[in-house]
Design a protein around this nucleic acid. Structure first.
Ligand SMILES: Nc1ncnc2c1ncn2[C@@H]1O[C@H](COP(=O)(O)OP(=O)(O)OP(=O)(O)O)[C@@H](O)[C@H]1O
Length: 750
DNA sequence: TACGGCAA
């Protein structure tokens, strides 16, 4: 019986090399690239996917990344970094020549045999020597030279320059495409323009070129490039902008220059419009350090603020008051208030703690809309949260990306300002995970005739991308004079009254490290684990021994493991494999060959991770394996009572679901959860993450934690400190619009 | 330095 091995070399990522056989796809805008690559000593090509610029057929490349599975295209290597080696190997040069017109494999080989590593230099400097090679006549020579100089020219010069500097040559094409004849000049005189104007070249590469060339390290261009780079870096921490002093301070460290050189450069960028400076003051009117934005985020905030204002103030005509329908029995006062609020408002924010029935009450809200002949559109930022919303409402719900219909090829949305979504009530659940660019895309696809219900809890997870949309909108809407209704639910339904899950969650929010509830049938536990090996064991032990014995829960279907990360001994991948080995040992199984082999057994709990419109299974669907056919390499999963067949290709989009990431669990609930928290998770450990994980549990929450990791998670609360300005933008938009109204009325009255 | 959603 096969026990799946945990992948060992994947945790740190892998480094592999090969020769590019074919560029299957390349989008110059997004740099999204699909390659077929042949590894040294192998024959069958493999698929590599990632972002890159200037990769061409025949290049020797090295890449760092990891192996993944794609539902339609199978096993593939997802690279985070890729670099072309200069064609310094004979086969590399030969492959390059093979693509020249008039040269096939045979002649190319003969040329390379004759001139060896000097081949390219000879093509550059004395191409007539090619006539020395058997089979190459004047005609062929002419075509070769024409092609070589056409593709060469500036590109070849750039390549040579890069080679001289001992830098990778694969940027040469992109550089010469962008700057044409002047490329070499730009490279030598203004290397930092490359960082801004050539996709794929960042500050670090440009700085290497500049340093190698001995360019002035105090030039304005270098400082400006450093400022842009600093802002891009902070985007990864969720910021849309940086306060000027912090921007200068971070740039100082990057550039190793004094602030007195950096500040004026930043101000010059602001004057030219390359950066936007937002002068701020506190609510008390005290000046605050101004925020410095990349223009696209400033514009996005303004668009979001304007459109939210349009919808909130009902700029559209014909959006009357909805008539009430009888609500279902047993709703809390807050839930009833939420139903009432949407009847005559364009925009409503529905918030409140975990398990207060926010998602649940949307069902009654939707009934009100439908009774008033308004269509409804439901969506959430993650597939799993969308699925939960669909279950809670009995309506179709999708990811926001799918609602807007992301287009193949461009990655743009089908629905936008020119082609808005069909009118009706739009419900966005788990809105705390909505980032600024997606919020902008969503709102651009709405009209003032739409109604919008934003549902979420700002204490739960913030978006992965930049922005803090829900928190900012709430901060503006919560002001006494705000016209945006906020309904706040307080009565908790998920856990029993007085549950230590709730008191522990509240302790976490207040920055206190929670402790085990040692009372009879206690619902909250912290089990100490020194390291991830031990944690792995303790998680298994809790699930297979302690929890079934003490709480009478079915370990396979009622206990959910929630992990901060996928990788590592205490990540979803390793724990899923270990839990499977326990839960379905001995059941009929299907083993898919590969490294490591993938195993599915009858009885396994599984989750679909990609949208498959044709078969009607979507990212976030959870099911149970009901039958396997090892001979035909197929199996059946029951999803929502329907059998869904999977062939070996489609199984690439299926994962075990005994352990899932905390991000994907937001919105869901389980009788019991077990959460590993370890040093290896430190990059992820935040208060919101822990709070979200704990509050998924209805009856039992067990933290298997290294005490230091737990303390870190409780104390780190930087979601509250993302630098964004949507609150101010929204307040300004509302003030302007309300002011306008008053003015209009005043004129009317006069 | 990772979490989510996409792309042929
Ligand atoms: N009025 C009610 N009476 C009884 N049970 C309720 C009521 N409202 C909600 N519930 C139950 O409470 C649980 C939590 O509800 P729900 O998932 O809607 O909460 P939520 O506020 O959306 O939580 P989260 O913030 O975690 O997404 C569910 O099991 C739901 O069935």
């Amino acid at each position: 019986m096969a026990t799946p091995e945990t992948p060992e070399n994947e945790a740190a990522g892998e480094r592999i090399e090969g020769a590019v056989l074919r560029v299957v796809h390349h989008n110059p805008q997004t740099r999204y690239t699909v390659l077929r690559v042949v590894r040294p000593g192998e024959v069958a090509p493999q698929t590599w996917v990632g972002r890159s610029t200037g990769i061409e057929e025949g290049m020797q490349v090295t890449a760092a990344g990891e192996w993944t599975h794609h539902p339609n295209y199978g096993k593939q290597f997802n690279f985070a970094r890729i670099a072309a080696k200069a064609p310094t190997t004979l086969p590399g040069i030969q492959r390059r020549l093979e693509r020249y017109p008039g040269l096939g494999a045979e002649k190319a080989e003969r040329i390379v045999q004759r001139f060896g590593l000097d081949t390219l230099a000879i093509l550059d400097k004395s191409p007539r020597r090619l006539l020395e090679v058997e089979g190459i006549g004047p005609k062929t020579l002419e075509r070769i030279v024409a092609h070589h100089t056409a593709r060469g020219g500036p590109t070849a010069e750039i390549e040579n320059q890069l080679l001289e500097l001992d830098l990778p040559t694969h940027f040469a094409d992109a550089i010469s495409q962008r700057f044409g004849e002047t490329a070499l000049n730009v490279l030598r005189q203004h290397p930092y323009r490359l960082a801004r104007e050539v996709r794929g070249i960042g500050f670090i590469t440009a700085d290497k070129i500049a340093r190698a060339l001995g360019v002035d390290l105090e030039s304005d261009e270098r400082i400006e490039a450093g400022l842009f780079h600093t802002l891009e870096q902070s985007e990864q921490n969720g910021h849309c902008a940086l306060p000027m002093p912090i921007l200068v301070q971070n740039a100082e460290r990057l550039l190793e220059l004094p602030p007195a050189r950096i500040e004026p450069a930043a101000m010059a960028l602001v004057r030219s419009g390359a950066l936007v400076l937002d002068q701020r003051e506190s609510d008390e009117g005290e000046p605050l350090p101004p925020l410095c934005y990349p223009p696209r985020f400033y514009d996005a905030e303004r668009n979001v603020a304007e459109i939210l204002t349009d919808i909130a103030l009902g700029a559209g005509k014909g959006r009357g008051r909805w008539t009430a329908v009888d609500p279902p029995p047993g709703l809390s006062a807050g839930q009833l208030a939420a139903i009432a609020a949407i009847r005559d408002a364009g925009l409503v924010i529905l918030t409140g703690g975990p398990g207060t029935g926010k998602s649940t009450v949307t069902r009654a809200i939707i009934d009100t809309a439908l009774a008033n002949e308004s269509p409804v559109l439901l969506a959430a930022p993650t597939g799993r949260a969308a699925k939960r919303l669909a279950e809670a409402t009995g309506q179709r719900a999708t990811t926001i990306h799918r609602l807007l219909e992301i287009e193949g090829g461009t990655g743009e949305f089908f629905h936008n300002a020119q082609n808005p979504l069909p009118e009706g009530l739009v419900v966005i659940d788990e809105a705390s995970m909505l980032d600024l660019p997606l919020a902008e895309a969503l709102l651009l696809a709405l009209t003032p005739q739409h109604r919008l219900l934003l549902v979420g809890d700002a204490d739960q997870l913030p978006s992965v991308g930049p922005g803090n949309v829900l928190r900012d909108v709430l901060a503006a809407a919560d002001r006494a004079d705000s016209p945006i209704p906020v309904v706040r639910l307080t009565q908790i339904f998920r856990q029993a009254e007085g549950s230590s899950i709730v008191t522990s969650a509240h302790a976490i929010l207040r920055g206190k490290v929670p402790e085990s509830d040692r009372s009879e049938g206690g619902q909250f536990y912290v089990v100490q684990a020194r390291d991830s090996e031990r944690a792995h064991e303790l998680v298994l032990k809790a699930i297979t021994e302690r929890i079934p014995k003490a709480y009478g829960l079915d370990p396979r279907t009622e206990v959910q493991v929630l992990c901060p990360m996928h990788k590592g001994k205490a990540g979803t991948e390793a724990l899923n494999a270990a839990l499977q080995a326990h839960h379905t040992a001995g059941a009929p199984e299907l083993v898919l060959p590969g490294r490591p082999p993938r195993v599915f057994r009858v009885g396994d709990r599984v989750m679909q991770t990609k949208n498959d419109h044709e078969r009607g299974v979507f990212n976030g669907d959870i099911g149970l394996v009901t039958a396997v056919d090892p001979e035909r390499q197929i199996l059946t999963v029951e999803v929502d009572g329907d059998p869904v067949p999977y062939d070996s290709k489609q199984l690439n989009a299926l994962q075990l679901a005994y352990a899932v990431s905390i991000h994907k669990s937001q919105g869901s609930e389980f009788p019991a959860v077990v959460v590993p928290l370890l040093g290896e998770h430190h990059v992820m450990l935040r208060r919101n993450l822990l709070y979200t994980a704990v509050t998924r549990a209805r009856r039992l929450c067990v933290l298997v934690a290294d005490p230091r990791a737990l303390t870190q998670a409780v104390h780190r609360s930087d979601a509250a400190r993302r630098f964004t300005g949507l609150r101010e933008r929204l307040l300004t938009a509302l003030r302007e619009r309300l002011g306008e109204r008053r003015t209009v009325r005043h004129i009317d009255g006069a």
